[in-house]
């Protein structure tokens, strides 16, 4: 039905595997360094590491918001909205091969004790980074590298 594996010979996955250097987490301008570390780790797990052909640059921002507020003014749930802009640049000629923005949200309950809410918050943030990383990888693997102009 027309779908070809990206990791088959000549596919985008083949061309990208272990060829991308993801930006180091301390270089991502964000207030949340723990999240940046998780995002870079999730991306490296899927894209490989130490590549020099392409450079993947990222931004990361997130916002938390209380939800499900009861009549007794208790916030029973929080959601974290995350957003990441990414740019894949080919090092040889500096051409931007793929770029875009991904965003998503994760939620956690706040009805439990303080440590339960805190554990929920930290787990929600880690999950959000895995989701953003998967969305970036999906878009990178869908890029038609041949279309990118080569001088």
């Amino acid at each position: 039905c027309g779908f070809t594996p990206v990791y088959a010979p000549g596919g985008t996955g083949e061309a990208l595997f272990n060829q991308i250097e993801v930006v180091a987490p301390e270089k991502i301008k964000t207030r949340n360094t723990v999240a940046a570390f998780a995002l870079v780790r999730a991306l490296e797990e899927r894209l490989g590491r130490g590549g020099s052909t392409y450079a993947l640059d990222l931004t990361l921002s997130q916002r938390s918001e209380g939800q499900a507020i009861t009549a007794e003014n208790e916030i029973t749930r929080f959601s974290i909205e995350g957003r990441s802009d990414y740019t894949l640049t080919r090092r040889s000629d500096g051409v931007i091969v793929a770029s875009g923005t991904v965003n998503n949200f994760t939620g956690y309950s706040a009805t439990g004790s303080t440590v339960e809410t805190l554990a929920g918050e930290r787990d929600a943030e880690q999950r959000l980074m895995v989701i953003l990383a998967d969305q970036i990888v999906t878009r990178l693997l869908s890029t038609d590298l041949t279309a990118a102009p080569t001088e």
């Binding site: 994760t106 939620g107 956690y108 309950s109 009805t111 439990g112 004790s113 440590v115 339960e116 805190l118 554990a119 929920g120 930290r122 787990d123 929600a124 880690q126 999950r127 959000l128 980074m129 895995v130 989701i131 998967d134």
Partner: peptide, 22 residues
């Protein structure tokens, strides 16, 4: 179990081997 009574299930922990928050 003091910290992991409330568990969320989404694409972020679909493939993780322990989906408890702590």
């Amino acid at each position: 179990n003091e910290e992991s009574n409330f568990v969320e299930f989404d694409q972020g922990n679909l493939l993780s081997l322990s989906r408890f928050p702590s």
